[in-house]
Design a protein around this nucleic acid. Structure first.
Lengths: 116, 116
DNA sequence: TCAATATATGAATAACTGTTCATATATTAC
DNA sequence: GTAATATATGAACAGTTATTCATATATTGA
């Protein structure tokens, strides 16, 4: 049996944590969002799209890499609902999904003291 | 040469994106934060610590898994500055690093419409 | 219809990552 | 000092993932 100086307090927190833990499925959905932006290559795309919507060609221009790699990355970001796409003629134009995305970016940048 | 209906506009956005792209090192630091919470097992620890500080034993109680696995996960979260640790006798007590962590969690949960 | 342009995608592989197991370190009580 | 408890960690393996390459789809213009 475990005991620590704050046994009672920690035990209550643990019990509350179990009671308030989101469903496995929701945890997974939240984790998927974080995973989408956990790679520098994809994170750069979000930073780029802060400047406004862009078609794939210009995303490639902004962040570098091959068209194929960027296209794969865009798909993952879209599936995580971090960006949205609309077709415009021959082009597909990408932009940040909503204001949450910008807010999260800014929060984390503040957190790690990164000027953006 | 590429052209799209919004060639001029997208090109300017791409140029601005390149000019305002954070340093490679900063992109990496931000990505590391997201990576830390991109695994359900680690995300659960953050959800758990919303209820208050806990020693390792009680984190294990709250989120499941082995002591070793949880300890590895705690280290990654600490290295990403998402949680902080203080020793208290035989125990090490963990808590969320600061208010940014809670704010980011809440934002993303709102984003994916997950009740927490 | 065909050619040209823009974007997407399946498969393969190399690199990365999470967990487990065994063990190490740190603290307390004796 | 030793024993017991709490936590941390290195190595290895299994599973995952990012990129590349080749190719497919979609749209436009002729």
């Amino acid at each position: 049996m475990h005991t620590c100086d704050h046994e009672q307090l920690h035990h209550m927190a643990a019990e509350a944590a179990k009671a308030n833990m989101p469903q496995e499925e929701d945890v997974g959905r939240v984790a998927a969002v974080f995973k989408a932006v956990s790679e520098p290559s994809r994170l750069k795309i979000l930073f780029a799209l802060r400047q406004g919507e862009m078609c794939v060609y210009h995303v490639v221009e902004a962040v570098g890499g091959t068209q194929s790699a960027v296209s794969h990355q865009l798909r993952m970001l879209r599936e995580a609902h971090m960006i949205k796409a609309r077709r415009d003629g021959q082009n597909v134009v990408y932009s940040l999904a909503d204001e949450h995305v910008l807010a999260v970016l800014e929060l984390v940048c503040t957190h790690v003291k990164c000027k953006i």
